[in-house]
Every structure is written in C-alpha cells, then in structure tokens.
C-alpha cells in the first residue's frame, strides 16, 4: 500500500534528478564550449560553412513563415478593429507583433526544427560511428571543432534571419493592408511608427540571439550524448527539437518578464 502511494513520488524524484543532471551536463558542455573558444585555429575555418548551413539555408523557410504570418496578422487585425478603433492600428499590431513576438519566436521554432535537429542528428551520427573519437585521436578538440562553430554560427545567424523575417512579415502585412483592406500606405505606416521604439528592434534581436544560442547548444548536447546506433540518433534528434522548442517558449516568457 505504501509502495503504491510512494511510487509516484519516487518517479517524480527520479525525473527531477534526471532533469537536473541533464541541465548540469548541458551547462558543462556550454562551459567547455566557452573554454574551447581559444582554439581559434580549429573553429575559425568552419564558421562560415556553418553560417551558411544555419543561416542561408534557413532563410527560405523563415521568410515563408513570416510572409504568411504578416498577411494573417493584417487580416485579423482589421477584423478585430471595428468601429471606434482606427484602421491604422492594423499597422501598430502588425509591426509590434512581428517585432516583439512572432518574428523571433516563429523563426526560432522553425529553426529549432531545422537547425537543432540537423545538429543533433549530425553530431549523434558522428558519436555512434566513433567519428568524434577519431577527431580526438587526430588531436582535434571535438568541442572546438564541432560545437563552437555551430553555436557561434547560430548566435550570429538567428538574429540575422529573424531580422529578415520581421521585415518580410511587416511588408506582407503592409501589402495585404493596401490590397485587401483598402488602407493607404500612409495609414499603415502611421500605425507602424506610432508606438515604435528602437528598443523593439533590440528586444527582437536579443531574443533571436538567445534562441540561437539555446537551439545550438541543446542540439549539440543531445548529439554529443547520443548512444546506441541509428535509433539513438533518432531519439536524440527528436528530443533536441522538443526541448529546444520548449526552451524557446520559456525564454520568450523570461525576456518578456525581465526586459519589458
């Protein structure tokens, strides 16, 4: 009887321990990543190729998402603002929402699926086929060779892709407002500038940078700690995507609380 009652608590305790251990190992990998920054000769050559993979290859999906988000925001705003609220608030809503929330978060989520999964799968495969061991035997510090360029590339490219996505989203909302909502450009732009603060841009970029950091380090973490063949790789990939998506949303709330 006591077994039955205490079992859930024991499982919960075990779960919490596992979680804490995971966070701890992630922290250690992150710390090692920072330490590995001094092996500039190792990672520098790899940075640009990784930036191409993280950033350039992700631009189409990010812009695609932003395009439709902008259109939908514009339409929904005009639907919501009836009567007393002037139509130029469509511009306010599209601009603010794209910049503060949807631009960074949707781009982050899309890239966590693309970049995070990619990193976890690649490093996971390298781990289970002993390629990471091989790197070590060739005197390459694996963290400097594999993790640093991916993390740096993500930190650099996430805000860049996000900025483009925001611009495309706002442009899409604008065109929608003109074409489908009978608004004038002047009205839309008036709304756009009305509550604009330069901090909005900073905020979006801070968010995107933090998302890039988290997606890359989490992808590397699960990739590095992959065990057991192709199945293990699949497992790591899934977990990397799930965890980094969750972390993005938590981080989003964190920034909203701390910075706004």
């Amino acid at each position: 009887m006591t077994r039955i009652l205490s079992q859930p608590f024991i499982s919960m305790g075990r779960g919490a321990t596992l979680l804490a251990a995971g966070i701890g190992r992630w922290g250690m990998l992150t710390a090692e990543t920072v330490r590995a920054l001094r092996h500039v000769d190792v990672w520098l050559r790899l940075l640009v190729p990784q930036m191409a993979r993280v950033g350039v290859d992700s631009v189409p999906i990010a812009l695609f998402i932003a395009l439709f988000t902008g259109i939908v925001l514009s339409l929904q705003a005009s639907y919501t603002f009836t009567g007393a609220i002037p139509l130029y608030f469509v511009g306010v809503l599209v601009g603010k929402t794209m910049m503060l929330e949807l631009g960074p978060v949707l781009t982050g989520l899309a890239l966590s699926g693309r970049v995070g999964a990619n990193i976890a799968a690649e490093l996971g495969t390298m781990r289970v086929t002993e390629q990471i061991d091989a790197l070590e035997t060739l005197a390459y510090p694996p963290v400097a060779y594999l993790v640093v360029p991916r993390v740096l590339a993500s930190i650099i490219m996430f805000p860049i892709v996000t900025a483009l996505a925001i611009a495309v989203g706002i442009a899409a909302g604008w065109i929608t407002a003109i074409q489908l909502l009978d608004m004038s450009t002047a009205e839309f732009v008036n709304g756009l500038t009305l509550f604009f603060l330069p901090f909005d841009v900073t905020y979006a970029l801070i968010k995107a940078t933090s998302f890039g950091f988290m997606v890359a380090t989490i992808g590397c973490f699960f990739g590095f700690h992959t065990r057991g063949g192709a199945e293990g790789v699949g497992h790591s990939t899934t977990r990397a995507v799930v965890v980094s998506s969750m972390v993005i949303l938590v981080l989003d709330a964190f920034w909203a609380v701390t910075l706004l």
Partner: peptide, 23 residues
C-alpha cells in the same frame, strides 16, 4: 587536456569501423 593532445599526436589509431568523417 593539452598534454593529452600532445600525446595523441604521437599515436595513430585505426578504428574498427574506420570512423571516417563522412562530411
């Protein structure tokens, strides 16, 4: 770690399953 890398420069390792970098 640094000393380990120095040592590893002196050692060649042939992996059982080759472990070639497939990228």
């Amino acid at each position: 770690r640094e000393e380990l890398f120095v040592l590893r420069r002196k050692v060649g390792y042939v992996f059982q399953f080759a472990a070639l970098f497939d990228s």
